[in-house]
């Protein structure tokens, strides 16, 4: 039996050197972010402008992704939605990274009872299926993008706390930390100058890899009606609005679906590329 030939993309992902992939996916991610920043000027039409005369039109030269049931241009709404989707994901990842790292470093440094209590709380969060817990929290807090971010933050910090705690525990026993204590460093200086820079690598890689996951989860909450509220364009809620029409006009779901897929893929591959680039073993191989 002959081996299955890898596709061009697979071959590229596996064989190209870490640096090349880092540049390529970094550029793609940067383009997405810049696009989201200037989404207003990139939209061909006003994403909020309704025109019932052209509702549910098929893709055409004028509206390449067609129009939704209110006659709004899908392409414009997908572009405008990128800002909501991408930046709320960044905000969420920033919150869980900061919160989780702060808790983890505190636990690893202080140890004792506080560490035990916080780690059992994190076990509790990890034991729960994330989205179900987030649904419950969002249900209690009520809908809206801010509450969706808070709900996901409440359940997603433990991963970072675990990493930060274990790294802090290992760094605090190193000879260089003892030397720093003997140099008269205060606790805050020890943590800011010696511990944080030495534990930042794995945390940043996890954060980049998490951008894709969190984007999916936020879109998932929006899809279920617990995230962004209409008429704000957001990919998850756009899919939700048009899901009833999936069998009659599939292109309406297609545009936001592809947008989520592409954004998640780019950030995941960027996370992989950063991880491989920072991993000395992988670097030797390439």
């Amino acid at each position: 039996m002959t081996a299955v030939e890898p596709t061009l993309l697979q071959a590229f992902v596996h064989n190209s050197s870490g640096k090349t992939r880092l540049y390529i996916f970094g550029t793609m991610a940067a383009l997405l972010i810049i696009g989201a920043l200037f989404s207003e000027s990139l939209c061909p039409y006003d994403p909020y402008l309704q025109n019932l005369d052209i509702a549910l039109e098929q893709p055409s030269a004028a509206h390449i992704f067609g129009t939704d049931r209110y006659g709004r241009d899908m392409l414009s709404r997908v572009i405008a939605g990128s800002r909501t989707s991408i930046f709320s994901t960044f905000l969420l990842v920033a919150i869980i990274t900061t919160l989780g790292t702060a808790i983890g470093v505190f636990c690893g440094w202080a140890r004792g009872r506080a560490d035990n209590i916080l780690m059992r709380v994190s076990d509790l969060c990890l034991a729960f299926p994330g989205l179900v817990f987030a649904l419950a929290v969002a249900g209690v807090l009520g809908g809206g993008l801010h509450n969706a971010i808070l709900a996901l933050a409440a359940i997603s910090w433990p991963k970072y706390a675990r990493i930060a705690r274990s790294q802090t525990l290992s760094v605090r026993e190193t000879a260089y930390l003892k030397a720093a204590r003997l140099a008269g460093c205060s606790t805050s200086r020890l943590i800011l100058r010696h511990i944080l820079p030495n534990i930042a690598g794995p945390i940043l890689v996890t954060a980049t890899l998490d951008v894709g996951t969190m984007m999916m989860e936020l879109a998932g909450l929006s899809f279920l009606g617990l995230g962004a509220k209409p008429p704000t364009p957001e990919w998850g809620s756009m899919m939700s609005e048009t899901r009833g029409l999936l069998q009659t006009i599939p292109w309406a779901v297609f545009a936001p679906g592809v947008a989520i897929f592409l954004a998640v893929m780019v950030f995941n591959l960027l996370g992989d590329a950063i991880r491989d680039y920072l991993d000395p073993k992988m670097r030797v191989k390439s």
Binding site: A175, Y176, K178, A179, P197
Partner: peptide, 14 residues
Amino acid sequence: MVFQSPQESFDPRR
């Protein structure tokens, strides 16, 4: 104090 393994007694990032 001067420690046993010189390289490990300096912060690798500084």
